[in-house]
Design a protein around this nucleic acid. Structure first.
Lengths: 225, 225
DNA sequence: ATGTCGTTTAACGAAAGTGTTAAACAAATT
DNA sequence: AATTTGTTTAACACTTTCGTTAAACGACAT
């Protein structure tokens, strides 16, 4: 147990089977997110979890195993809900709206995931797509839907639209430290509020993209087929 | 010198004063970008540069010094030109257009900078803004300019506009491995071409934002599908 | 009472990493 | 010929990290 208060030798009941395991994962997440895999030692994690290294190795035999668990855990915290939305059958506008809502909400819960994932990916680029596919992400489906609604015929290619969507949703979290500091003067709450606001801001903007890319010119019309 | 070809004991003239230094920086950049500071050893760098660790320490006494050099070098590869644009006096449209062009061009040269900087920042958040200010970045100026042109009066707040701008320009590079793999099927060239295309794509989109946020956005209806 | 399970303490070996130093050497400078 | 500069080789001391092992201990179950 994580508590260290004058209980050098008082043991507790095992309570829930995986109680300590959760504590470990939590600490590992926190530190891996913050300093990356290479920048975090098993000792660091054990300390943060309030246990010792031996026990840590007892649960996860190697650092690689622990990291793998954390990494997949990070992805599975938002990919599934994303997949669900992507597979849903609705108008493109509703689709986009829900996608934005889902992603931003997920990011607000664990804001450090983007920079973590992006970093750990750069040392191992082919791994992400593999995992993504394992989890059922299929951009081809989204692209088809857009084509089906006429996106890309004139102006904006579907993949560019997806990139824009992702950029607008994810980047503000990946760059959070910078943005908070130099744009919001260190005011975390103002930052969070701004991110919340983006949930309703972005659909309007992206709707604009879609309008541009479908009909020529700017007269927009509700694209419900 | 990086060459290892049967010249175990042949020495070369010092040529230019900082010839080896450049080699070192280049190798350090490459590896730091790829694996981060903690994930890269001095030995790795020495090997990649084709020298030995002693010489490495001869040029940069400690790893921290070397890293500092690389980090600042990374920023100074694009921040100054960015500052120049930000300080220039031109219409908001031209301004935005040039900003996009500048950033994307810089990123195309060193695509790994975003994820590198973002990662190394998360362990040391207050450092970036400090350096940025040292280099003369002042978002206040840009915000004033926008206000001066009426941005933010109706719809889109200036800071949100800046965030969008940055997101659209920078994120595609930060997420390069993912995008290349799952959106372009591993085709690097297609990816680069797409990024090039964004130089002319983005100004149009962002121009749209600005239009929305300046004019009362009633002709083009605001949010909520 | 015995046993099991989660846990701690202590220690070990092996490897990797950092920073330093002394000595030599080759090429260019003087 | 002597000196300087960039460079290598070799070695050293020190720390960190990782993974493992043996032993014990406390709580709980049988």
């Amino acid at each position: 147990m994580p508590d260290r208060e004058a209980m050098t030798h008082l043991k507790k009941p095992p309570e829930n089977k995986t109680e300590t395991e959760k504590t470990i994962i939590a600490s590992a997440e926190k530190l891996f997110y913050l300093r990356g895999k290479a920048g975090t030692s098993m000792q660091d994690i054990a300390d943060d979890a309030g246990i010792n290294r031996t026990l840590l190795n007892y649960y996860f035999r190697t650092k690689d195993q622990l990291f793998e668990a954390v990494f997949r855990n990070a992805l599975s915290s938002f990919v599934p809900s994303l997949v669900e939305v992507m597979r849903s059958d609705q108008s493109l506008d509703a689709y986009v709206h829900q996608l934005i809502e889902t992603v931003i909400t997920a990011m607000l819960e664990k804001p450090q995931i983007p920079s973590f994932v992006l970093h750990e990916l750069s040392s191992n680029p082919q791994r992400m797509p593999q995992i993504m596919r394992e989890m059922g992400v299929d951009p081809g489906y989204a692209i088809e839907k857009m084509h089906g609604e006429g996106v890309g015929e004139v102006f904006l290619e579907p993949r560019q639209l997806i990139i824009n969507l992702l950029s607008l949703c994810v980047f503000p979290f990946a760059a959070r430290p910078v943005i908070v500091e130099i744009l919001y003067g260190g005011d975390q709450e103002a930052y969070v509020a701004a991110m919340e606001e983006r949930k309703i801001l972005l659909p309007a903007l992206v709707g604009q993209f879609i309008g541009m890319s479908k009909k020529q010119g700017n007269e927009q019309q509700p694209p419900t087929p």
